[in-house]
């Protein structure tokens, strides 16, 4: 069953990635789109805990790093989403997260994830952008992700919950 669960999660990441690069650029604000892959990782972390989420985060990150039209140094999104998966998994202290905690987790995860990506770029001198520009992009990205949370997170979390009984206790 765990193979099925992994397959469904990987499929969710692939769908999120394709939507993120093909559909959302038409709705983008100054080129900034909601990070659907990050939302999938957060949903997995909130329903299934950090262990599952870090693996999914790594997979989603590598996909974001390698799928066209990506051209940045590979591994940067992988690093960011692994940390996001772990942090969001830590948030799951109570059994059922409320709407407020979900939104707060998404906002924090989006901020941390995009920041790690931006900082890794500063270290590698990949984007060569100023800090004010980076901050503006990060903040808009957080707003996008929070705006999409009520539409996307319940669906994803229900999906991951449905897969939960498959877990051999």
């Amino acid at each position: 069953m765990s193979a099925v669960r992994g397959l469904v999660a990987a499929l969710a990441v692939a769908v999120a990635l394709v939507l993120q690069v093909t559909v959302f650029p038409h709705l983008a604000f100054e080129g900034i789109v909601p990070n659907l892959c990050l939302l999938v990782v957060v949903a997995a972390a909130l329903t299934r805990g950090p262990q599952f989420a870090v693996v999914l985060g790594f997979l989603a990150g590598v996909a974001l790093d390698l799928a066209p039209p990506a051209d940045h140094v590979a591994g940067r999104w992988a690093l960011a989403l692994v940390v996001v998966g772990w942090l969001a998994g830590r948030m799951r202290q109570d059994v059922k997260p409320t709407a407020t905690t979900v939104v707060a987790t998404v906002a924090a995860s989006s901020f941390v994830g995009t920041s790690i990506f931006a900082i890794s770029g500063l270290v590698l001198r990949d984007p060569a952008l100023g800090v004010p520009d980076l901050l503006r992009v990060i903040l808009v990205a957080v707003v996008w992700d929070v705006l999409l949370t009520p539409f996307v997170l319940p669906l994803l979390m229900r999906m991951f919950h449905r897969l939960e009984p498959a877990r051999t206790a």
Binding site: G49, P50, Q51, F52, V54, V55, G57, F58, G61, V62, D65, V73, A74, G75, R76, A78, L79, V82, V83, W86, G89, S120, L124
Partner: peptide, 23 residues
């Protein structure tokens, strides 16, 4: 699940860093 997750976390972070270095 969280106890092995820390070593898993370290492993995956190292994997990401390796990927970054390689590229």
């Amino acid at each position: 699940g969280s106890r092995p997750s820390r070593s898993l976390l370290v492993a995956l972070v190292l994997a990401s860093l390796t990927l970054i270095t390689l590229d």
